[in-house]
Simulated assay, not measured.
Amino acid sequence: MIRPFDWRDLNLVRRLQDQGHVLNYEQALLEGAFPLRQALIGYLTLGSWGMQTLVLPRRGFVQLTCQPDANRAYLCYLSVSTPEDWLPLLEGTVAYLGRHGIHRLVVEAPEGGEAIGHLQRAGFALYAHQQIYRLDRPPAGLQVGTLPGLRPYRAADRWAVRSFYINLVPPLVRQAEGMWNGLQPDRWHAALVLEQEQEIIAHLAVRRGRLGHALHLMLHPQADHHADLLLAHGLAVLRNAPDRPIYCRVRRYQGGLDGALRQVGFEPLLTTAVLVRHTVARVIEPAWARTPGLETPTEVSTPSVPIHSVDQAGAVSIPTRRAGS
Rank of each mutant, 00 (worst) to 15 (best):
R3K: 13
D6R: 09
N11Q: 04
R14W: 03
R15N: 11
G20W: 14
A28W: 03
E31W: 10
G32W: 01
P35Y: 01
R37M: 04
L44C: 07
T45F: 03
V55P: 07
Q63G: 03
L64P: 08
P68E: 02
P68K: 00
D69I: 07
N71W: 08
R72G: 02
Y77C: 00
L78E: 01
W86N: 05
W86E: 09
E91W: 14
V94P: 02
A95E: 15
I102H: 01
R104Y: 11
E111I: 10
A115V: 10
I116F: 02
R121I: 05
Y133N: 09
R137Q: 12
P139L: 00
A140D: 11
G145H: 14
D157E: 11
S163V: 00
S163D: 08
Y165D: 06
W180I: 03
Q184L: 11
E195C: 09
V206T: 13
L211D: 08
H216M: 05
H216K: 01
G234V: 04
L238A: 05
R239C: 01
D243N: 13
R244T: 13
R252L: 06
Q254S: 02
A260R: 12
Q263L: 13
H278K: 08
V280D: 12
A281H: 11
A281N: 06
I284Y: 05
E285D: 15
A287I: 14
A287L: 15
P292H: 03
G293C: 12
S301F: 08
S301V: 09
H308M: 07
Q312V: 09
A315I: 04
V316Q: 04
T320E: 01
G324P: 13
